[in-house]
Write a protein that binds this DNA or RNA. Structure first.
Lengths: 168, 168
DNA sequence: CCCAATTCCTATCATCGCGATAGGTTTACT
DNA sequence: AGTAAACCTATCGCGATGATAGGAATTGGG
């Protein structure tokens, strides 16, 4: 499960990307629009500011604002900054590597082998998507809604085994 | 993070797949070989038995055994059976769907749009891999170890942006 | 210059899932 | 019979998570 912290952060960033022209937006405004607990969001935006993707101004007319262009914000970095590494196993994280205590031999660990693929696939998506792209996709899917052309996430699919619409 | 329950289960299943010929294997044997707490593994194997993947026999010479062929065991089902749906958002689970309480409009939710791709990619891997394939991959990677040919998880890569070896 | 709006900071809390253990009951082989 | 194993139910400690409380610092507008 993606932590609330990251969910809120992504929503707030999309909101801020949409209101880039409006100057600083106060936390309360974002919180109201996105139904996020104010105090919680406050802490989140503060972290995002400390990690360099937001600017802030205090006092009246203050608020938060994107510091960098949405094209340069990689969503994976957002998630990592707020919720830590997303490796499905400790032994798959580069920055927080930690040998799995239960693992007899890491080199021949089947679980590791399987999850390494999952991890790589996840990273290719979250790090390969920018804030700008996400905003664009939301707009596109809102339009394509009426036309039923919500195709995505299948670069060159190939001969997929037909019955592969997995669940859960 | 993949829960311990699922990690242990996968390890145990790989072990059992390797010892298919030996008849029933007692829990203690697997636990010792894979460094898993006995009582915990006991509960896990019981669940796997109740979900139809394993058979058991009681008393001396008893133990657990694969009920079905490793080729028919989809790893995604194993994880789901033990640890529940792996959807990164409640609103992405088919069997345990639950509207995200924080979501203002699900149809235009950016987080959902992003994580839907992550989810799909994850499922394609875990549901697309069988126990037999996993065992085979472990063997293959153990051999390729000395030859440096541990390529995997890149079907037809294409022009990847060069600097895309993500971390964490 | 003062007031109010806002960011910023620290502490604290309740809940919940997870990993694990304890202690027993039943089955069945030798 | 005796023993080795599966089977069952209950419980527990712990940490992360999501959230709140209460205030301090900053800064613009009147």
């Amino acid at each position: 499960m993606l932590p609330m912290k990251s969910r809120y952060a992504l929503k707030a960033l999309v909101f801020l990307a949409r209101h880039q022209a409006d100057g600083p937006v106060p936390v309360a405004g974002i919180a109201a629009a996105e139904a996020i607990p104010v105090k919680f969001l406050e802490a989140i935006l503060l972290e995002l500011r400390n990690s360099g993707i937001l600017t802030s101004r205090r006092g009246p007319t203050g608020g938060y604002q994107l510091r960098v262009e949405p094209e340069t914000v990689h969503l994976g970095d957002v998630i990592r900054n707020l919720s830590g590494p997303m490796a499905p196993l400790p032994c798959l994280s580069k920055t927080a590597y930690h040998r799995c205590t239960e693992c007899v031999d890491e080199a021949t660990c089947a679980v590791r082998l399987l999850m390494a693929d999952v991890h790589a696939a996840t990273l290719r998506i979250v790090d390969g998507t920018t804030l700008a792209q996400l905003v664009a996709r939301v707009d596109a899917s809102a339009v394509g809604e009426a036309e039923g052309q919500s195709e995505r996430c299948r670069p060159e699919q190939g001969p997929v085994s037909a019955k592969l619409d997995f669940i859960d």
